[in-house]
Amino acid sequence: MEIYDGEFIAELEAIAKRVRSHSITMIYRAGSGHPGGSLSGVDIMVALYFHVMKHDSKRPDWPERDRFVLSKGHAAPALYAVLAEAKYFPEKELETLRKLGSRLQGHPCMRKTPGVEMSTGSLGHGLAAGNGMALAAKLDRKLYRIYVLCGDGEMDVGETWEAAMLASHYKLDNITAYIDRNKLQLDGPTEKIMSLEPLADKWKAFGWHVIEINGHSMKEIIQATNEAKGVKGRPTAIICHTIKGKGVSYMEGSLHFHGKAPTDEEYKQAMKELGGTDR
């Protein structure tokens, strides 16, 4: 097992904190967006972009790069903040989220935003698109890997399971799916709206290697990803137990902030907690 030095983990955590702060600021300024699901997936995206993935912000189309697909496209603010931190575009541009003429659409658009690999937003598409990329990598005998972040609400979607079947049928060991298991979807708790459990067993039954982790632990995200890289002949699903709205006390576990921007007061409070600048 790798040894993780505390300083390195702390660095990732600091980036994640900035990304959270950017995300909330963007949504606040835009007056709309999805804070809850953005915050729950931040640590996974930060671990991927700042430790796991081979990529180069100066060459977004570098053929050998690893690919990240944000299947839960409504977490776009977090993805944009990660891409800005990774220098795909200036941090200042984050202010333009959801504004007319912006490259930062409400949901990711691969034709507008440097670093965005797939246009998403309608749920349940990302894993299948990731599979297509994984098939292409195999065809071209390339070593790059595909990372897909799915929301747990997307487990309701039939296509998710069609894609799960395809990935194991074609033995796509170059794709890893992260399931942001924050246990809340728009209308309520996932188990109340459409029961998902036993979720790990479902993925196992579809032929996937399954790992369950704390999706806010950088160490666990990295360890699980390394384990996935070593699995041959089948894909890996990492069920990341997370908290919706993670990092902002009053948003944590709150349904209210699935798709609503904070008020002025709420925004001030969030910035206090995230150590961001009140803009």
């Binding site: 053929p63 299948a128 599979n131 297509g132 990329m133 069609e162 079947m165 395809l166």
Partner: peptide, 23 residues
Amino acid sequence: FFNCGIAEQNMIDTAAGLAASGK
């Protein structure tokens, strides 16, 4: 050639991933 089974939605998105990779 990739047979996607009776899963047209999955087939179209899989095609999207392949096309995004230069195919």
